[in-house]
Computed example of a mutant assay.
Amino acid sequence: MNSRNTARVGNRIKSYKKGQWMQTILWSREEVPPRAKHLYESSIRPKINLEENVRRMVIIDIETGDYKVDENGLHAADYLSAKHPNARLLRLCI
């Protein structure tokens, strides 16, 4: 990762894009589910735990805590990926 536009610092990658440095945290496969579950239980669930959301999917960006709810998670994942291109996303059923 020694190009002019990226640098690795510990478990983070910094990349230069559109005139600014952006930082991405590298999460292992084992770290993603517990992180998503913690975010869901501590801050997301109280906001979306509604009857209308039963059997819907929530997609969580584990780096930013952003989330989106929809029927099957596809549109939510597209939305969050567009918002944060290097996002680590996890899908949970509500």
Rank of each mutant, 00 (worst) to 15 (best):
M1E: 13
M1F: 06
M1V: 03
N2K: 10
N2Q: 08
N2I: 03
S3K: 15
R4L: 11
R4P: 06
R4Q: 12
N5W: 04
A7M: 14
R8L: 10
R8T: 10
R8D: 06
V9S: 11
R12C: 07
R12P: 00
R12Q: 06
R12K: 08
I13S: 02
I13F: 08
K14T: 04
K14S: 00
K14I: 11
S15L: 10
Y16G: 01
Y16A: 01
K17C: 12
K17A: 07
K17Y: 06
K17T: 07
G19R: 05
G19P: 05
Q20I: 13
W21N: 03
W21V: 13
M22R: 08
M22W: 10
M22Y: 09
T24D: 10
T24Y: 04
I25R: 13
L26E: 14
L26N: 13
L26K: 14
W27F: 15
S28G: 15
S28E: 15
S28R: 14
E31D: 05
V32C: 11
P33V: 00
P33R: 06
P33H: 02
P34K: 04
K37I: 13
K37N: 12
H38N: 15
H38D: 06
L39Q: 01
L39S: 09
Y40R: 10
Y40K: 11
E41C: 09
E41W: 04
E41G: 02
S42Q: 15
S42E: 14
S43V: 03
K47C: 08
K47F: 12
I48K: 05
L50C: 02
E51W: 14
E51V: 06
E51C: 01
E51F: 12
E51G: 01
E52K: 15
E52G: 09
N53T: 02
V54A: 09
V54S: 10
V54M: 13
V54H: 03
R55M: 14
R56G: 00
M57E: 09
M57C: 12
M57F: 09
M57P: 08
V58N: 00
V58H: 05
I59H: 02
I59V: 15
I59Y: 02
I60Q: 05
I60V: 14
I60A: 04
D61S: 03
I62C: 07
I62N: 04
I62A: 05
E63M: 01
E63I: 01
E63C: 05
T64Q: 05
T64N: 06
T64F: 10
G65C: 04
G65Y: 09
Y67L: 04
Y67Q: 01
K68H: 07
K68G: 00
V69P: 00
E71V: 13
E71C: 00
N72E: 03
G73C: 03
L74K: 15
L74D: 13
H75K: 13
A76P: 02
A76L: 03
A76G: 10
A76I: 12
A77R: 14
A77Q: 09
A77L: 11
D78C: 08
Y79V: 07
L80S: 05
L80F: 04
S81E: 12
A82F: 10
K83V: 07
H84G: 00
P85G: 09
N86A: 06
A87R: 02
A87I: 01
A87M: 11
A87W: 07
A87Q: 08
A87V: 07
A87N: 03
L90E: 06
L90N: 10
L92G: 01
L92V: 12
I94R: 14
